[in-house]
Design a protein around this nucleic acid. Structure first.
Lengths: 149, 149
DNA sequence: CGGCATCCGATCAGATACTG
DNA sequence: CAGTATCTGATCGGATGCCG
């Protein structure tokens, strides 16, 4: 006997939300895709590639701080997920180009929207951060710490 | 005096892109915000909180696989960035509620858009993954593939 | 209940060196 | 130029235990 219910059916739909939430399942395959897409360099790579085809070294130069290893690694993830197409010209000095697939352009657009919003809203965010820090030390709850942090 | 240029001015605008690209700077503060928002649990938390106010244990139960430590950690990041508001009722059994701030709702909406797209497109993505794996072993060495998109 | 502190293993990520 | 391989340090992230 399966001890547990066949389908836990992530609880009754309730009156709550519009969120499909299969993503909340921990074993949902979406998690892996999300991981690649939202990875440190995945986001930046998708944004850059929204601008068109780029070469390996090109990407390396454009995305500040990325190492060759992580660039290759992340490109492989995105390629395996079907978001990036890799084209290799068999010339003397190797020449490889990367571009988004149609699928990649769709996810890239959404990632770019997020990234752009953050950039545009950075002033507000930084302001909110300062406010938080200020009120954080303003209410140490019960003055348990005389010293600042 | 500053030995280096005051403002490297991330290169001429060129004819290139709509990408502001301050994000590509490696030392851009946006990177940190992006890191919190796109972190493993940050994404899921924002999506869940788009559905309204939730308690700590509530979130713990809803987001499959998250540990208390990471939940607390991620909530703190998001709170410090001004995306999440934490409200603590001083009752006997502690009662703490988390909800999105107006700023958080904006970033949350974009994150949710991305997450939703991935869920909806999962069939296509999985299909693309299989295609890749298939053609990957079909061209083990130097067999160039006419990359079909 | 809602945390925080600690220990510890797993994974990430960078520097370096080497290959086609 | 475009990677791959390896070694190592940093960080992530989970389990446990304690406190308010």
């Amino acid at each position: 006997m399966a001890a547990q219910k066949a389908v836990p059916a992530r609880r009754a739909p309730a009156k709550n939300k519009p969120l499909r939430g299969e993503l909340m399942s921990a074993d949902c395959p979406s998690r892996d895709v999300l991981k690649h897409v939202t990875s440190r360099w995945g986001v930046l790579l998708l944004v850059v590639l929204m601008g068109g085809t780029h070469r390996f070294s090109d990407l390396r130069r454009t995305v500040g701080g990325v190492s060759e290893k992580m660039l290759a690694q992340t490109l492989k993830w995105l390629e395996a997920d079907g978001f990036v197409a890799r084209k290799s010209y068999d010339t003397v000095p190797p020449h490889v180009e990367y571009r988004l697939t149609p699928l990649g352009e769709q996810v890239g657009a959404r990632v770019a929207t997020l990234a752009t919003w953050i950039e545009d809203s950075l002033p507000e965010i930084l302001s909110a951060q300062r406010q938080f820090e200020a009120s954080a030390q303003a209410e140490p709850a019960d003055r348990k710490r005389p010293w600042q942090l």
